[in-house]
Design a binder for these strands. Structure first.
Lengths: 313, 313
DNA sequence: AAAATGTTATAGAGAGGGTCTATGCCAAAT
DNA sequence: ATTTGGCATAGACCCTCTCTATAACATTTT
């Protein structure tokens, strides 16, 4: 078997056409180069260099070898450069999964910040319902996922990322209701505007009502959080939404949050990753940044610039 | 600096997805593989494999590296195969130079034999006058040359290859002259058919005549040995040719060799190579075969098959 | 539960081979 | 003749890879 280090020595020698010079570039001594090439020639059973009085020169066979070795090493060089780029987050990709409702208001600001910092990293977003997301995570199609907790799966590791407070909001038409606290009876008597079934948010509302002994009979079902707010504003009823999603409109007075005798418990948002596999450098740095900001996320307008330029390990 | 042997270990491990299995294919132990990969990961500052309960799996970064390394090693593999072919004379090329007159009758039979034995080796013939040939040899454009001796050049090494006997031949018209020995006067009185000036053969004739005190005044000058014989046969005079070139026709009785009081000295043919540079494997084996047959060459019909299948070293 | 299996990681000893220094040798240039 | 610039060789050294033995861990089997 040919020692691969010999190839490196061969390459430099062929380029320098001079053992002494090659040895200097390789930071070894001239006899080491001489020895390596001798070994190589013996192992291959071929003379690779003509020894001239003023250096060496590739033989026919040596030249043949040189062409291959040069290409081969050029590949290894670019490989190393590529890896350095991956390590320094100049390249790479992150595949993130998230429930539809979380992408826009919770994930997007973070993604913007990250992308501004590391524009070379491609971000692939994949939306869907929580169980689908979990499945993709387990299949390795995505690196991490932002999901509603609880999510218990032995293969997944979920860390808390933020808590989102939910609320019911109404428009101008129901303004008077927002001035006092409502009972469950009063609430369930209102026309409700909810997300379509199948989402974990809808699940949450239904379980909450059920826990209080009420059944949910929404008047309007929509697939999109923005539309929920829109219909509430137009006076169709009370929409169930995350408080931060409508914060601005509530402050502007175009929407009104209902106060409840039984307050809604806050819901936790978690960041899920696979238990067994480590993340790629890019994904890992994104996750680390996200977790470092845990708490600041989703509460108000998040800071756009990350704290530091140095990638987290 | 990354030890190149690590790449080999990395490659096998990536293919096997199992350190233990890779270690077996590499004929080393599992801890050695573990160690090498750990070294590599530390040096690169990147995890290359996920360690799973039942083997290992490339990380994102590892996969990036793998693609390069696989290509790179495939190149080195083909390089080795190529070199083996060169060594075993399945490939290669020989560039031979020869005086015009020597190619057909002296070199061609040898080339045919060699080519039948080693059909993969490309033979490049380059003809010209002796000084041109010598120049090409020194420039490294050709590997060896078949030339008339003497050829003294400090950069060239010339070894005797054969001796060619020359003679004058005539056709039917001068048949009677061939029955007795001729004096120089008689010879120089005949119409002479010689090669054009510039060739070493013509040089030789002129010097020989000059040594005897005669000047050469050829009636016909031609550039081609076959034509010399042709004109002699047609009765235009006495042609100066190598004896072996016309041997057949003399035996058939279509040409007649003149006997001379002063016999022509035999001329030596040599095989010239560069003093300082070694030959390629292919050229070396051809030269070795030629020199081994030294003496049999040009004397009569040479044997077509070489003695042995094993290449000479 | 416990044992067996299959996997990687770690520790420490050993040795092989590459590397070094010193020197020789050769050819070309001065 | 001497100097210069180059490669080859010899022998000592030491680094680093490899090995054996064992740990650690997860999964599967009993």
């Amino acid at each position: 078997m040919v020692n691969l280090e010999w190839y490196r020595i061969f390459l430099y020698t062929a380029r320098c056409r001079n053992l002494t010079k090659a040895s200097q570039e390789l930071h070894i001594t001239q006899p080491s180069v001489s020895y390596a090439i001798k070994q190589m020639e013996e192992r291959l059973g071929l003379k690779l260099f003509h020894r001239l009085s003023k250096g060496v020169e590739l033989t026919e066979e040596g030249r043949a070898l040189f062409n291959y070795v040069e290409q081969s090493f050029s590949l290894l060089d670019t490989a190393q450069k590529h890896l350095q780029n991956l390590k320094q987050l100049n390249e790479g990709e992150i595949r993130i999964g998230a429930s539809d409702s979380l992408i826009k208001h919770l994930l997007l600001p973070q993604l913007n910040a990250f992308h501004k910092e590391y524009p070379g990293i491609r971000i692939r977003l994949s939306h869907g319902k929580s169980p689908e997301i979990a499945q993709r995570l387990k299949e390795g199609v995505i690196d991490c996922a932002v999901v509603h907790m609880p999510m218990s799966d032995p293969q997944l590791s979920v860390q808390p990322l933020a808590t989102l407070g939910d609320c019911f909001v109404v428009g101008e038409a129901y303004r008077e209701l927002a001035k006092r606290s409502l009972t469950m009876e009063e609430l369930s008597g209102l026309p409700l505007i909810l997300l379509s079934p199948g989402s974990s948010t809808r699940e949450f509302v239904e379980q909450w009502f059920a826990a209080k002994g009420f059944a949910v009979k929404p008047d309007i079902e929509l697939g999109n959080v923005d539309l929920l707010a829109e219909f509430a504003r137009l006076g169709y009823g009370a929409a169930f939404v995350s408080r931060t999603f409508v914060q601005e409109e509530v402050e502007r007075g175009t929407l009104f949050e209902l106060q409840l005798d039984d307050p809604l418990p806050p819901r936790s948002i978690g960041l899920a990753t696979r238990q067994d596999r480590n993340l790629s450098v890019a994904a890992d740095s994104f996750v680390a940044i996200l977790l470092a900001r845990q708490g600041q996320i989703g509460s108000s307008t998040p800071p756009v610039q990350p704290a530091s330029h140095t990638p987290l390990s």
